[in-house]
Design a protein around this nucleic acid. Structure first.
Lengths: 342, 342
DNA sequence: TAGGCCCTGGACAACGTTGTCAAGAGGATG
DNA sequence: CATCCTCTTGACAACGTTGTCCAGGGCCTA
């Protein structure tokens, strides 16, 4: 490296530092720091001189150095499954809004439902020393977080519970929501009801399935083989599952879709059929009102906001035992769930 | 502060450092650094001892310190309008994916279409010394970025051009797309066509309006007062605008919607009407296929990917003059745009 | 066996900021 | 006029890491 250029103000890629500003303003380093941080104890005249130097040089405080010194980064990490999913967009935005209110920035990462990638992301965020972490887990074992939590990184799990660590959680009532949705179909006369959900590895998927079974049991209905399908939410698989349930000599007369992506595909399959098929989906979808799709709605923004507020309460010093919050869901009848059996 | 506890390994909130690891492993500080960074020149035996100490202490490298020393943060910033908007989710995800491939994390922030907030966010990201910046601008004057760009923060503007600074840009062909969409309606017999768009302050809004005017002019149609409405995309305003155009003695027979949110509201308004109204919307929407909505589609993921790739090419040292890329749009006919005039 | 080389490992400074502390100026008070 | 106090200012260390440079030991060669 060219050592003679070390402190040059003009070298490309070498930003001016407080030292440069101090030299130019003819004051001490600490005085510049005081001006930059609006600390008291600086004469208006000195402040003006420093400010002029700052503007002239285009100085911008280096937060990396600040973070190193202060220990807090004023940033939080959010690890979710897929930022492109319409459920996570609003959630993420809600988290960001709360963070902003607390003067923090948000670093996002998508795990793509891959436990390894989740861990990789989370640890990268910890290495950055984010102040807090909101995680929508892909994996089911989070012991790797123990040293981080012990070291003081506040953590909140969202949408799905954490595995083998004791942390705050904010969940939706998947069980209750699914149970209500299936009971709704039963109340409209259905007895042969199919359930198409996400991979059984995912907590919400099994909770919703549990809700389905509970509603069927409540109504004294025996669930037949072939009425339940868990697996990826790829359109092809969902389509195959739906078509199988709707075909054959004794087809189901209604479908319960385990999440927004399943619902979308189910709507497409049903649209192609002549015989009407009732449908209730978990998660609301844009334009579902126009298509008359009955859904169990969960408020993604509320989930995100709640989680972020918990997180910042922790960061502000709350010390109570880890809490588990469960947010309610709402049934929104729009027609597809009120169709009688064909 | 309790100075005696300064270097304790167990103090809450005080993470072990390389120094602690070195002490425990009985090696020098730099040796730990070498192991952590997989640098050569460490005997397998020494490496094992260090690794054990790392695991035992739960050590995690402090990237803040690393960044300070190395000068690169391995993170990029993305400032967009609203993460909850279905157009920006996929865009953001695409950016993230490219960043990941380059080993960088993504910090995003929503400007909420507020120029001041945009600037605040951008400067906060610069203070963090992100390596690069992708901005979907809300404002139209970006001279505040000059010192940052001169200091070497690579910057790419997306979706809308930058004001008064010379940087890379990745845009969609708003003008051409709108022109094509309106021409499509004209080709299906419409002459009285309404345009409902976003605030004229926003570049894409005026470009699309320009496309509308061009198509009308090409067809020799004089645009009447009251056929054009620019303003916020709030449902109430859009609804009022649409109802006004569709009411009265000489209503329009077709609508062109300037973006996804306008389209959604327009679909709702039209659904309430008896007389069919043709519609073409800018931006694709989930389930638009089922509703038969004809759209001008732009590939949000491609926009994000292209921008991020440009950015990293810059970071890898590309020095050519700032480029302006314009991505094409696609007309997807689905029914609503092919309705004849009522 | 001396001389040279390579390999491993460690001491030290530096990155840019902030907290601590002390010095000096200037005014008020006895 | 001496003393004390307040207010402004700056020198210095520290945050945890990495780059530079040097030392010491082992090995090879002449």
């Amino acid at each position: 490296m060219d050592r003679t250029a070390r402190h040059s103000e003009t070298r490309y890629g070498n930003r001016p530092t407080m030292k440069d500003v101090a030299a130019r303003a003819g004051v001490g380093l600490k005085t510049v720091s005081r001006v930059v941080n609006s600390e008291p104890g600086v004469t208006p005249d000195t402040e003006r001189r420093v400010q002029e130097a700052i503007d002239a040089l285009g100085f911008r405080r280096n937060d990396s150095a600040r973070v190193l010194r202060k220990g807090r980064t004023a940033s939080i990490g959010l690890v979710l499954e897929d930022l492109a999913d319409p459920f996570y967009g609003p959630l993420s935005r809600a988290v960001e809004e709360v963070a902003r209110a607390h003067g923090a920035l948000l670093i996002n990462g998508s795990s793509a439902e891959d436990p390894e990638r989740e861990q990789e992301l989370v640890l990268a965020l910890c290495a950055r020393r984010v102040d807090g972490l909101i995680v929508i887990p892909a994996g089911d074992d989070h012991r790797y977080l123990e040293p981080e939590i012990k070291a003081g990184i506040a953590t909140v799990f969202v949408d799905r519970p954490a595995g083998h660590v004791d942390v705050d959680m904010v969940l939706s009532d998947s069980f209750g929501g699914a149970r209500e949705g299936v009971a709704h179909l039963i109340a409209h006369g259905h007895r042969r009801i199919g359930f198409i959900g996400d991979q059984p590895r995912i907590h919400t998927a099994t909770e919703r399935l549990r809700g389905y079974h509970a509603a069927m049991r409540d109504a004294g209905i025996t669930v037949e083989d072939g009425w339940v399908s868990l697996g990826s939410t790829e359109p092809e698989r969902v389509r195959a599952a739906a078509e199988e349930m709707l075909g054959g000599p004794e087809p189901v007369t209604a479908l319960f879709a385990g999440n927004n992506r399943v619902t979308v595909t189910a709507v497409r399959v049903i649209a192609e059929r002549e015989r009407p098929v009732a449908l209730v989906g978990f998660d609301d979808i844009e334009l579902a009102d126009l298509l008359g799709i009955t859904v169990i709605s969960q408020d993604a923004a509320a989930v995100g906001r709640t989680a972020a507020e918990h997180l910042f309460r922790r960061l502000d010093g709350a010390e109570h035992a880890p809490a588990r919050v469960e947010l309610p869901t709402t049934l929104i009848p729009r027609g597809s769930g009120e169709l009688p059996p064909a």
